[in-house]
Design a protein around this nucleic acid. Sequence first.
RNA 1: GCGGAUAUGGUGAAAUUGGUAGACAUGCUAGACUUAGGAUCUAGUGCCGUGAGGCGUGUGGGUUCGAGUCCCUCUAUCCGCACCA
Length: 977
Amino acid sequence: MEYNFREIEPKWRKIWANEKTFKAEENSAKPKYYVLDMFPYPSGAGLHVGHPLGYIASDIYARYKRLKGYNVLHPMGYDSFGLPAEQYAIQTGQHPAITTAQNVERYRDQLDKIGFSFDWDREVRTSSPEYYKWTQWIFKQLFDCYYDNTTNKAERISKLVAEFEENGNANVNACSDCETIFTAAEWNAFNEKEQDAILQAYRLTFLADSWVNWCPALGTVLANDEIVNGVSERGGHPVEQKLMRQWSMRIKAYAERLLTGLDGLDWTESIKDIQRNWIGKSIGCSIEFQIENSESRIEVFTTRPDTIFGVSFMVLAPEHDLVDQITTPEFAAQIAEYKKSASLKSARDREADVKNITGQNTGAFAIHPFTGEKIQIWIGDYVLVSYGTGAVMSVPCGDQRDYDFAKHFGIEIKNIFENVDISEAAYTEKAGTIANSDFLSGLEVKAAMKKAIEAIEAKGIGTGKTNYRLRDAVFSRQRYWGEPFPVFYKDGLPHLVEDKFLPITLPEVDKYLPTEDGAPPLARAEKSAWNHFEGDHMEFNTMPGWAGSSWYFLRYMDPKNEHEFVNRKKADYWKQVDLYIGGSEHATGHLLYARFWTKFLYDQGYIGFDEPFQKMINQGMILGRSSLIRQVFISYLDDSSKKYNEVVNYDKNIFVSKSIAESFGTDSNSKLGSVIERVKNEMIASAKINSGPTEFQFEIQIVPRRISIDCVDNDILNIDKLKLWGKEFSNAEYVKEKNEIFICDYEIEKMSKSKWNVQTPDELVEKFGADTLRMYEMFLGPLEQFKPWDTKGINGVHNFLRKLWRLFHDADGNVLLSMEEPSKEALKTLHRTIKKLTDDLDRFSFNTGVSNFMICVNELTEQKCNNKVILTDLVILLSPYAPHISEELWEKLGHKKGTISYAHFPQFDESLLVEANHAYPISFNGKMRLKIELPMSLNPKEVEEAVLANADAQKWLEGNAPKKVIVVPGKIVNIVM
RNA sequence: GCGGAUAUGGUGAAAUUGGUAGACAUGCUAGACUUAGGAUCUAGUGCCGUGAGGCGUGUGGGUUCGAGUCCCUCUAUCCGCACCA
């Protein structure tokens, strides 16, 4: 019997499903291991071959861990709230829940075909009320907590209120936007509205008027990480700044822990760096500058307090509160003008315009706190109102932007660095010796910083401070297809819905669009459409896409619990995700938010760990390989209009094969040339172009256009298929290569329906089987690398499985196994393979794993090995990669009942690999020239003697005595001449 | 501008601690076989050279008996951040 994957694969998938082979149990004596994939958004387009790449890798690893005796949790689910389903709903009126359910079904179907070992009993969907009940519940906990900088964790708001009632907020050390200090008496005198406003400034999720990224085309706000190059990540629509009352998450509170927590994680440095950069910690000092003839002070933040004596001017952001107040009358007009032009520039223009130095003097002066000198105050749009205090002290000798600004406006540049030339550029190194700086002179930069901060603090004009670039995350979306908030409003104040009423389910609406007044879609819902209604109205916003994905890995541990989001005992058993596989595009979104929520839940004692994903691997994207065909356009010069008109009367499209097109123009005898001549003549003869001239002028253009990759195999066009694919191809003329084939071009780009370059896993499973697909995707190259998809090598992998099958069978296809003691040779092959594969798996090198299987089967085939002992171990080794064929062969090996999934991973025996001899490569001056087979037992001196006595080696020595001989026992000999 | 990554045959790639560069696969060339199959088998295939041999891991330098691997310089491509004080 031939290797019939079409029969074998469905058979085993059915057995796995019926027997619940991959069910993870909590009551296990085995050690646990949690392997997680980033769950997919179920889009309408279905899976393409890029999606399963990470899933295959994680599945191989999960299966490997089972063989190694671990209790493995390997779940899958769907991130099923999101924009595409909603937009489809807007267009068609179909409820997004229906579309989503259909897409989920399609995904499940496609995933099932690949033979993953998921425990489907634990499936979660973020859009199911049973799930988002707990997303709402976590939101409530965040609302009810603030971040205490003294205990360094989230604490209950009730504790804060108790402190307010007793002592006011003077001694409160919390992460807060509250800028006022009040006493207990004042607090108790505040009305409900005033108290609410103050508490909002402390809560970890809070309602506030904030500048948000508003996307008019999508009708919603976006988080910073949902914007790429100034346009929306989804759809590429423009984004503008708008002041709106929004829910936000006080992620800033966790900035320091999110930063330091990275150190203990087994992630790539590049992802860690992206997060570090996003958090953007800078250590420095805040300093207040007095304004001449004014009560007001300007507070600045600087990372270089050591350069305080180099300050020669100050710059405020144009939007800074003090600008109008301090501007002198003579500069008022120019300042107003500058502010106006700055406000008209979009954030994008402002970014693009970095080279242009602009600014305006206010006419006001600040007083240097140490020298008492007068310092000009300017405004300039290179200072951002949203970072630090929106004002900077400018030290032109130590900062290039300040330097350029000073040069441009002719402001004094003071040099405060010893032996540094600043005539051309600023000296921006944080090293060297400070000079011309009073009490700082002669100090190294580091010491000067410390001393400067001490002096500033002693004077009471500032304090050492740390700033973070990380912004609080906007949490409201003006959308339908997301989690409703467990919030209602009464007299304009937000209130939480009680736990017993959760979940607040999505109400039915007539349309999925905003209302006429611009309120979000949920505002359309009748009062009766809500499953719970309280107060004046419910919250109309919904939560963003990242809400549900910030904690889903916890729900898999306890997916059906109706009383808790996760049982603490179960969370204590499974703990962190041991291995997380997914794309790196989530670096500043999902991965940061999930860490934030995990730390919060840890602070509140709901779970016992504060990092969700211990080890992470980021698989590279698989890019599409679009097929291009070159079309020839012939146009003629119209005498009357003097323009080239496309030829319309020639009723056939002309397409030309790759190399013919490329040699066109250089090769006068080309096939294409004669075709063009013929067409020209036909056209002239037909007299349909008869604009007058006796001599026609023609222009030839060759334009590539995309065609479906289904019509192309290894760049060779299947003309018959193409003719069926599109009308314009059916009656076309094809200029082929000399050997009568037609070659297409290709382009590497993202897979997308519109580019006709999507390869679905389904087709390949149908053609070659899931085991081949799994191994081929791994064989393509290192998991982390971006790589274009192509199927050139898939036959090689398929043939490998056939070759393996043949090891077990005789020429007639009957199982034929040797029961004898395995040969030494075969044992050596097997154990070398065990060693290599274990190493490969331990360092997630799946591509070399596949190679090593090929080497092993090639060797065993050479040895004509059909030994049962050898093949049994080989099949276990292979089963994580190619589970279907392995199960089938396992059964043929006599394991009639049960699955290979929990067999014992073979043990490597080093003694079987010991060699008596070694073929020493002999190098002369580092160049390998010959090999000499010598016993391993020789010591270096004996090796040297044996090599020098060798006739071939002597030939290379040409009678000279070697200067030196290096012998590395068991490895190499190098002779220096 | 800052940070990170990558660079090896026609192609995908391998080389884990500095020790035979190009494993494995694909493609190509020649041949065998045949029930013409995305079959199997044999030989060849980094480049130059008839050959002996020479050259060869993006560039240039260095360390070393020995460098794809370590150090320095530069270049190209990709990714992230970007007037962050």
